[in-house]
Design a protein around this nucleic acid. Sequence first.
DNA 1: CGTGAAATAATACAATA
DNA 2: TATTGTATTATTTCACG
Lengths: 145, 145
Amino acid sequence: MQLDQLHYAILNELQLNARMSNAEIGRRIGLTAPAVAERIKKMQEEGIIKSFTAAVEFSKLDYLQRVMIAIKLPPDNIPGFLKEAEKTEGITKIVHTTGEYCFFIDMVLKSTEELVPVLNKLRKFGETTTFSILAVPVDSKAVRL
Amino acid sequence: MQLDQLHYAILNELQLNARMSNAEIGRRIGLTAPAVAERIKKMQEEGIIKSFTAAVEFSKLDYLQRVMIAIKLPPDNIPGFLKEAEKTEGITKIVHTTGEYCFFIDMVLKSTEELVPVLNKLRKFGETTTFSILAVPVDSKAVRL
DNA sequence: CGTGAAATAATACAATA
DNA sequence: TATTGTATTATTTCACG
């Protein structure tokens, strides 16, 4: 798919406020609402836009325990690990990396006790290191495209 | 602020699709559109909803280098580090943790060269470890509230 | 929080560059 | 092929109960 400056302009607006109307986006970048709607739809179909989400401050909703779990695991265990992790409630993000740790998992929990069964489950696949999250100073910050 | 089941229902819908109309949310949970609009506005004012964002697949936009930077730094350096990191283009998330590393930074870049000045800047505050991101199997996954 | 009226926006689709 | 104009439908907004 060929992207032009207008596609990038739309993505910039949607990163800043995903609930902006097509008409408002169009006004800001110089397109009509149907044209904006069409471009957004296409970018979703192409997988360039994965989803539109609300960034929720979980610490204000009794999710007092937030953790970053790093896990180092043998390659053969990756599919099984991912299948298990994807269906674990509270996991919001999984990043696969090179280096000392293979995966970084972001998770929110209501209490420390909830963490125990999760770690027991994940430990079957590899060695885990859990970091307690004190704060998230920057979350879902837009990238200027 | 006192939250009831309808607030949680709204947050669930918005996590799944932030562009859903107030009318549609209302239909799903049994409220009128104005009532939904007012609750969303209040949750934004309270900081329960931080923002509405589009989850962009940066790997499809020439952001071929994505990294997770872990940084360990003395407490006195935290304010200076944050100030610097917050204005660094490409950083999408900063998590402050306990444990071996103090902060985890998510960053997208167009090339490896761009990483050099960033790391030189951050190294003034503490010891960095950079992990190259191979994939993001789960991103901005909703938490069932 | 709901209702109802006015303004605004989304959508479908024909026309067109 | 992608955008625009237009008509129709839907939604948002706001005053009032």
